[in-house]
């Protein structure tokens, strides 16, 4: 049975850029131009989960992304690694969405796509770290959801999921359609093969505006938010690290032990 899969991929500024380059100005995060956007890392894991199922069981993968001015080279990585289709909810009106307005628009788009057996999201997006959109989409669609998956397999119309819990994992079974949020233990996204990159270059994403999914601009983005951002700031840290020296690394190590005793930490 071929499976219809949708993977929600968000474009975010590279979260692993050095901490010092993250600067807040006028209640907004600003980053230097050389910090490139990426697909949010857990969404890459989600894409990998879908690709593994496609390989084994067969099926179609639609990548879905919401934002404005999405960078084609970044978001088309989904096509290059093997997604069949890319749909962008792209419009100024989608700017400054919160988890509510994001999940609402994504769920509405998924209804328009119509056919879906499995929806994948990352466990949390690496910009606002909210961790709610996936479960929110499932609530809006009225389908079951399993969060923090490290392995996903489909057999006989059922999904078998390894869900990470504090000291181990649980094996959970659920019928299709279902939504799954994916964690990094699932494994890194594969590299795109040259053939995939060339095929992706030829494909154009489908772009939907709010009206294309039947929403008013007042229902999306900043206007559709449930939360108000009162303040974005960076607490000041007094960084004072005492570097312990020595004539050799070994001596520095020994000196560290002496220092800890002197500082009464032992």
């Amino acid at each position: 049975m071929p499976i219809n899969m949708i993977v929600c991929c968000k474009q975010v500024p590279d979260p692993e850029a050095p901490p010092a380059v993250f600067k807040v100005a006028g209640n907004k995060m600003t980053l230097p131009a050389d910090v490139k956007p990426v697909i949010s890392p857990y969404d890459e894991n989600a894409l990998e989960a879908a690709l593994r199922i496609k390989e084994k069981t067969g099926g179609k993968i639609t990548a879905l992304s919401l934002g404005n001015k999405l960078v084609r080279d970044v978001i088309k990585k989904s096509l290059a690694v093997g997604a069949d289709e890319l749909i962008l909810l792209e419009d100024e009106a989608f700017e400054e969405s919160d988890s509510w307005s994001t999940a609402y628009a994504l769920a509405t788009a998924i209804k328009k796509i119509g056919q879906y057996d499995l929806i994948f999201c990352g466990r949390q997006a690496a910009d606002w770290d909210a961790g709610q959109t996936g479960l929110g989409i499932a609530e809006i669609l009225g389908i079951p959801a399993v969060s923090v998956a490290r392995k996903v397999e489909v057999t006989d119309g059922k999904v078998r999921i390894e869900q990470v819990i504090p000291d181990g994992y649980e094996i959970v079974e659920v019928a299709l359609p279902t939504l799954i949020t994916v964690t990094s233990e699932l494994g890194d996204l594969r590299y795109a093969a040259l053939k995939g990159i060339m095929a992706a270059a030829k494909k154009q994403p489908t772009v939907w505006k709010p009206a294309d999914i039947g929403l008013e601009p007042s229902q999306v983005g900043a206007a559709g938010r449930h939360s108000k951002l009162n303040k974005l700031f960076q607490p000041v840290k007094e960084a004072k690290c005492e570097i312990i020296e020595g004539d050799s690394p070994e001596e520095a190590g020994a000196n560290l032990a002496v220092k800890l005793r002197e500082a009464k930490l032992l």
């Binding site: 606002w128 449930h226 700031f233």
Partner: peptide, 16 residues
């Protein structure tokens, strides 16, 4: 709450 992986913090409110 911390945002951007802890590179900033944000204060949110809601009337709901």
């Amino acid at each position: 709450r911390p945002v951007y992986g802890g590179n900033a913090q944000a204060t949110f409110s809601s009337e709901l």
